[in-house]
Simulated assay, not measured.
Amino acid sequence: MEQLKKVFGLTMIALFTCYTIMAQDDEQISGEPVTITATYDGFTSNSYSFTFINGEGEEESIFFDYATDEVLKAFDLKSKKLEGKKFEVTYEETTETEEDEEGEELEYTKTTIISLKQLN
């Protein structure tokens, strides 16, 4: 039962991340860096949350599961001090696969912040 919860959780995170990224720009190729201007919302549930204005002029949230060591050394993203601050966020997506206990492959998109520049 515990393993089923883990698989379900990973699947939900992967689906939500994929949806968020695809909604932002359907033409981006996995692995190609993307830069957006976004407001930092904070660190919750093991992900870094930002809000940005998408191509249709609507506010949208994006969640990053990872950040490079350089980004984490420069910014304490787990601190509440940076919440509400505006950043230029450069990130990349990579598609990865994992094998579950039953031998089935699970594919998910890993989003990583590779550069962060505070704007205000």
Rank of each mutant, 00 (worst) to 15 (best):
M1D: 10
E2F: 13
Q3F: 12
L4V: 13
L4Y: 11
K6G: 00
K6M: 04
V7L: 10
V7W: 02
L10F: 07
L10R: 09
L10S: 03
L10D: 06
M12W: 01
A14I: 04
L15Q: 15
F16D: 03
T17R: 02
C18S: 14
C18H: 11
I21V: 15
I21K: 07
M22T: 07
A23H: 12
A23V: 00
A23E: 13
A23T: 04
Q24I: 08
Q24V: 05
D25E: 12
D25N: 14
D25Y: 14
D26F: 11
E27Y: 15
Q28T: 13
Q28G: 03
I29H: 03
I29K: 09
G31T: 02
G31Y: 02
G31Q: 00
E32R: 08
E32M: 08
P33T: 09
V34T: 14
T35I: 05
T35F: 05
I36S: 03
I36Y: 06
T37M: 09
A38D: 08
T39Q: 12
T39S: 08
Y40L: 10
D41R: 14
G42S: 04
F43S: 01
F43P: 00
T44A: 00
T44V: 05
N46F: 04
S47V: 03
S47R: 02
S47Q: 04
S49Q: 15
S49N: 11
F50H: 00
T51K: 08
T51N: 10
T51G: 02
I53H: 10
N54T: 06
G57L: 12
I62K: 02
F63L: 07
F63C: 07
F64N: 00
A67M: 12
A67Q: 09
T68Q: 04
T68G: 00
D69A: 14
E70A: 15
L72W: 11
L72Q: 07
L72P: 03
K73W: 11
K73T: 09
A74H: 02
A74M: 05
F75N: 01
D76T: 07
D76R: 09
K81P: 04
L82F: 13
E83D: 05
E83H: 01
G84T: 03
G84H: 05
K85P: 01
K86I: 13
F87Y: 09
F87T: 03
E88I: 03
E88L: 09
E88R: 15
V89P: 01
V89I: 15
T90S: 06
T90F: 00
E92K: 14
E93S: 15
T94V: 14
T94Q: 13
T95I: 14
T95C: 09
T95P: 04
E98R: 14
D100H: 07
D100T: 14
E102Q: 07
E102A: 09
E102L: 08
G103V: 10
E104W: 04
E105P: 01
E107F: 01
E107A: 05
Y108W: 08
T109M: 13
T109D: 11
T112P: 02
I113F: 06
I113L: 01
I113H: 00
S115P: 00
K117D: 04
K117N: 06
L119R: 07
N120C: 06
